[in-house]
Design a protein around this nucleic acid. Structure first.
Length: 120
DNA sequence: CTGATGACTGATA
DNA sequence: CTATCAGCCATCA
């Protein structure tokens, strides 16, 4: 397939990944990028949303890795996303979405990794 | 090509 | 918890 790119454009995959998020559910930029098959392209996802190339996209379901809204508090986008999330039954506290789990950080010290968890 | 910017992420202090 | 630094990727001047 020469004319056809064989694989859809990254934007299309990201677009599908965002649309794949069910109502009342949220996902992170890295999560969307990963689902789209583009690990490490979290910034690309954010860039697409900022462009607004596509309509009907549940961009409000896309949050940062911390589960926080990408927009700064007090911004129009922040209020918009917060309102849309609450409209879907999502709980938002202090600009942060409740129910958003995050990966655990690595051992800050080698000793901690060697000694492992206490009591074990 | 170089430098700066951004709806990002993870680690460190 | 907040603040700061470094890394990575894509686009624009």
């Amino acid at each position: 397939m020469t004319g056809d790119s064989g694989i859809h454009d990254a934007a299309t995959r990201i677009h599908a990944a965002i649309r794949a998020v069910p109502r009342g559910q949220v996902a992170g930029y890295g999560e969307i990028a990963r689902r789209a098959g583009l690990p490490g392209r979290a910034r690309l996802v954010a860039r697409l949303l900022s462009r607004g190339d596509v309509q009907g996209l549940p961009w409000h379901r896309v949050l940062r890795s911390d589960g926080r809204i990408a927009f700064p508090e007090g911004s129009v986008g922040h209020a918009e996303q917060c309102a849309r999330l609450r409209a879907e039954g999502v709980v938002v506290e202090r600009g942060r979405v409740v129910g958003m789990a995050r990966a655990r950080p690595l051992a800050e010290s080698l000793d901690a990794a060697l000694w492992g968890p206490p009591g074990g």
